[in-house]
Nucleic acid binder design. Sequence first.
DNA 1: ATCCCGAGGG
DNA 2: CCCTCTGGAT
Length: 220
Amino acid sequence: MPTQPDANRSALVRRARLANRRLALAYPDAHCELDFNSPLELLVATMLSAQCTDVRVNLVTPALFRRYRTAADYAGAERSELEELIRSTGFFRAKSNSIIGMGQALCERFAGEVPSRLVDLVTLPGVGRKTANVVLGNAFGIPGITVDTHVGRLARRLGWTEEVDPERVEAELNAMFAKTEWTPLSHRLIFHGRRCCQARKPNCAECPIASLCPSAGQAI
DNA sequence: ATCCCGAGGG
DNA sequence: CCCTCTGGAT
């Protein structure tokens, strides 16, 4: 006989998994919307995506990826030139510093290659868990929940977690879903967050998982 | 005025 | 825990 908190917990997990299945039907084409052709390109694009739309990132990366092709290219990049190429993505000074430092770190510690382990990725300047999980999930096929602004907001609205710290949100979602769902679930939540459950105006009237959402219809 | 596929520093 | 970094879109 399960205790009451356990029963509530398992009901929550069943509701969350049902929502994931409905999101899979609603967004069968959910995928990483950053344009890239290599792990290094995805790493750079993801570093640029902080507080910036992926549409904006995809506007600057074609010229960026033509100018810099290897880790050594980034390591030796001229700061002012790199800054101008990425200026419109915001935080351009910090991002330039991170990208140059990232290139140097790859050359010095990883033979110029992007590492495929989270513990290694997060040692790179400007690379946190979110960026690391994007690279792992989309360039190396290693499952991970990417807790960006959308995933965090939706997980809280859906009542899947009350945590604010992205690492804690990630841990809670990891415990609720099969590992094979971690990356596709992240993509579905991001698609849903952009197209329907937006930060300022959630469209609960047309939301495919409103019946599974404790926040539906409420002013958030 | 608020938000966008965050990370680092104090 | 907080704060800051930055430009563009709505």
